[in-house]
Design a protein around this nucleic acid. Structure first.
Lengths: 344, 344
DNA sequence: TTGTACGCGTTATCAT
DNA sequence: ATGATAACGCGTACAA
């Protein structure tokens, strides 16, 4: 007894076409340009497809269309709210154009980032966003060779040759510094996350220095703490800075909100009242910043907007439209309750 | 003067083959099974590919291989550390198998989640993970029809028919309740995020109730606050619960760490000393939990492990191996400094 | 070890 | 409005 059982292959357009008594061309049209198919036929096709559980096969479709409807984004980590927010905004914005988002994390490692970019190209992404900076010399050329629209987000190296959507880190930190100067502060401390492979952090330090220099002031080496990330690092940093010899800073500028929150906690532990005894500023305006007590003075970076604008740029490139290759947003000072004039 | 300029098409395997003086089969082999190609030839192929900037075209490759090397994950949002962490772990684990990850956010909306799943199937994902629960009746069947390995993560409906990797929410919350009972607490409050479309939250409440019932105790309605998310919600909830008529709870069980942190902040504002006057517990063990002061007693959910195990399951399915269709991890109580025996 | 030739599933072009 | 047919680019038996 020969087993003539057809091993149930997954349905193709051909199968749907046969079931509906039409050609594969009509099946394709019914799904892609329904208006061009007679309603009765269309319904037959849909019914057949539903029964067979058929959906257009992505690879076949991509091959014929020369488009995958997949975009890629490479970020350092999803563990930071600012990056996660941006990715989520991108995903939503791309979805409006029926584009799905591939993600890759580099863990702040340029080599991993470059590898992720290559992998995404191999997956046939239609467009590509990289957070921060181009990870490797020559990589941009590879992307260009494949004619894949490309954009750098979040960071912005002014004068960079690559299309970018972001903000100017130096300017933003100059602004927050000038705000503290206007309050009357003269002695500053600064707490920074690791600067390794991170131009943005370097720019933040430069922004502070430049604003201070305009007033003939500077940042004492013992008042700079650099190299760790998170609340505990903020605590440790504040202890170290306030424990240093010489005059004590009255204002602490932190490279991000988490460090600032750590500094804030430590100030309380040390018996200092913020902002009476010490002013502290953050950066990013993460969701916690406004919810702790005292609420953190910081700068809001609209990451949703960055994500949206990046997608807008990529989509316009995809459509062959011209678009400005550098889009800058302006972080806005959010004055809350951790800043005040220095103590007398 | 006829312009015979060839508009530069992007390179195919054919072009590389010609440039290297071999057949396309050899080009393919050089990239996929290098061992089967003579070293000299291989180098010629690689050189030609490098010059032309060629990479295998994803769609063609996927069509021939019947595999896209792309997996998908659908989560409520990237804005919550627990979900972002899990996604990041999945991305890393998939990368080891040369699989790239597509993400979709549902914003806690079952319809959006279902749509994301459909989109991913249309993109030809090789495997699919959905965080929480299956969003729609009938959707699982669609996935099965396409023979796409599938797993539910994070949540676990015991007795569910779908493969899942997660933990038992009810059991976990029973455990934390028993811990507080053992410390001597008798009157409990509970603060919960929105339960709408979220079985996991419902299970947490049930877990607490069940552990209390074992001791003949219960949760008074005025001691349950439900429906908002975040630090501010935690503050508001504590105010409301402690302001209610009747006996005051000595322990507050929170549905997650952020609510617990809010409650902790509010307790301080109200002049209460935690844990002397009031015990508070969280859930998840987000990075902040151990960094605030007093450090939060909570339960650690190893989301990295969940992500890893989910990928392991999916990959084994992809390889046609058998694998247990329900994998449970055990959240672990992390006893820190927000819990103590109740005041006399 | 290498080449030939076919199939993968869809869409676009061109006829009808 | 619909059908026939030719790409689309790669991987892989099979043959040499």
């Amino acid at each position: 007894m020969a087993a003539t059982q057809t091993l149930p292959r997954t349905a193709r357009a051909q199968d749907v076409a046969e079931a509906a008594g039409v050609s594969t061309a009509t099946v394709s049209r019914a799904f892609n340009t329904p208006a061009k198919v007679a309603p009765a036929v269309r319904d037959r096709v849909f019914a057949a497809a539903a029964i067979l559980g058929w959906l257009p096969h992505a690879a076949g479709s991509a091959l014929a269309r020369r488009r995958t409807s997949i975009a890629g984004v490479v970020i350092p980590t999803l563990g930071q709210e600012v990056f996660a927010t941006q990715v989520e905004a991108m995903q939503a914005a791309f979805a409006e154009h029926d584009i799905t988002l591939l993600i890759g994390c580099s863990n702040y490692d340029p080599d991993q980032a470059a590898q992720q970019v290559r992998t995404m190209l191999a997956r046939g992404v239609d467009a590509l966003a990289v957070l921060g900076q181009i990870p490797q010399a020559g990589l941009f050329e590879v992307v260009q060779a494949r004619r894949v629209p490309f954009v750098i987000t979040y960071g912005s190296a002014p004068g960079s040759t690559h299309p970018c959507v972001g903000f100017d880190n130096a300017t933003a930190f100059s602004e927050i510094t000038r705000y503290l100067l206007a309050l009357g502060h003269q002695i500053f401390g600064m707490i920074l996350p690791p600067t390794l492979h991170n131009e943005r952090i370097v720019a933040r330090l430069a922004g502070v220095r430049s604003a201070l220099a305009d007033e003939g002031l500077g940042l004492r080496p013992q008042h700079i703490f650099e190299g760790e990330y998170g609340i505990l690092a903020g605590r440790k940093a504040l202890r170290q800075i306030l424990g240093a010899n010489g005059p004590r800073p009255t204002a602490i500028i932190c490279g991000n909100d988490l460090l600032a929150i750590g500094a804030l906690f430590e100030a309380r532990t040390m018996g200092l009242v913020v902002p009476r005894d010490l002013s502290i500023t953050g950066f990013d305006d993460i969701s916690m910043a406004g919810e702790i007590d005292p609420a953190l003075t910081t700068m809001k970076v609209n990451n949703v907007e960055i994500g949206r604008l990046a997608v807008e740029y990529l989509v316009s490139q995809l459509c062959g439209e011209a678009a400005p290759s550098e889009v800058l947003i302006l972080p806005a000072l959010v004055e809350r309750s951790t800043t005040a004039p220095p103590p007398k």
